[in-house]
Design a protein around this nucleic acid. Structure first.
Lengths: 191, 191
DNA sequence: TCTTGATGTTAACACTGTTAATATTGAGGA
DNA sequence: TCCTCAATATTAACAGTGTTAACATCAAGA
């Protein structure tokens, strides 16, 4: 039962094992050396696949962002009328519940550490895909409902702030406990 | 121009210099050794005042939280009628603008790293004072306005989520640039 | 004056990210 | 089939980090 010199799928496993570790202990506890050791590989091996720690974290963020995007898109698709305000509500709920299920993801996704400001948004990370998706959907629905462009503009930000704020708040573990968040999520988001 | 063996005011200077460094370069770049050196003191000196790095960070957070509290309280006091909905609006604006002025404070204050879950909230940090203050003020105003207790309960969370979410969003530097946030803050918060 | 507790220093430890030099392998061209 | 070489792994080293133990300095009160 010996393993070969070459791992075979190290890049992907680094990403997935890294996310697992973040999920369990949070981003602060994650070290490249522990991660490499967990993958059964030496401390310098990851540098064959990522230029540095930041680049690996960025890849991990992209991976998680894709999961979140799946979540949001499914929420819309499973709405009876995907063009209705109900779709927006469901998307907002999905967003908050995603971070409620994996509280460590929140601070991991939105920490500034590994956002490359020098690059354009498109090239840097996928961090903004969810916001983009949310924005487009709200636009679409509101236009169909005949809301004015002026109100749409503010509505997007207001709605996004509320949803993102709920995610931020509920992902603080010590706050979550004394409130039945899921029950009141609807009422809060439609208000 | 030599300084004495004993610093004289090290504890306080560590806190304030630390905050200055966070403000400039963000929390990730802050190291105890650099901070100690900046204060003209050896690497082990801080350990006479703080058990570990976490405890120092916690003291720094408390310091910043007090500044934020001042901000919020002044916003209420400077409102013509401190019991009116206008006070809530002003408080919300003050909250967002505080983090807009010092974007690094946001991730510093709300990172989980130095929150001691084992302790009760009161003893752990002052992190929750602003929320407490906000909550109490909203309660007071809404009761005076005759809002039902049920709606107050959800209103607090909804409002807090929006305000906190706005702070979270605007403190992401790369988003801020293509939007005139301050102009639309009113409209978004009253909506 | 002398002692003592508060506060400082130095040296060492284990751990981190990162790099340079080197080793191992698998796949494709001779 | 063999040989080469690019991809990928390893080991050893470096500087920087938080932390601790052992020791030094000093101010203030007995």
């Amino acid at each position: 039962m010996k393993k070969s010199y070459h791992h075979g799928n190290l890049k992907q496993e680094l990403i997935e094992a890294g996310i697992k570790m973040v999920q369990q202990d949070g981003i602060e506890k994650l070290s490249l050396r522990k991660l490499a050791s967990y993958c059964g590989v030496s401390e310098a091996a990851p540098y064959n696949h990522f230029a540095n720690k930041e680049e690996l974290l960025s890849a991990m963020q992209d991976y998680v962002t894709e999961q979140l995007m799946d979540c949001l898109m499914k929420a819309v698709e499973h709405t009876d009328e995907p063009d209705s305000p109900a779709a927006i509500l469901n998307m907002g709920k999905a967003y908050v519940l995603f971070f409620m299920e994996y509280p460590e993801y929140y601070s991991f996704l939105f920490m500034q550490q590994c956002i490359h400001i020098d690059l354009s948004i498109e090239e840097s990370t996928k961090s903004f895909l969810p916001f983009q998706y949310y924005k487009d959907k709200v636009c679409q629905v509101y236009r169909k409902e005949g809301v004015s462009e002026e109100r749409i503009k503010y509505g997007i930000i207001a709605m996004w702030a509320k949803v993102h704020g709920m995610a931020a708040i509920t992902s603080m573990k010590h706050i979550v406990k004394d409130f039945e968040w899921e029950d009141v999520l609807d009422k809060i988001l439609v208000e």
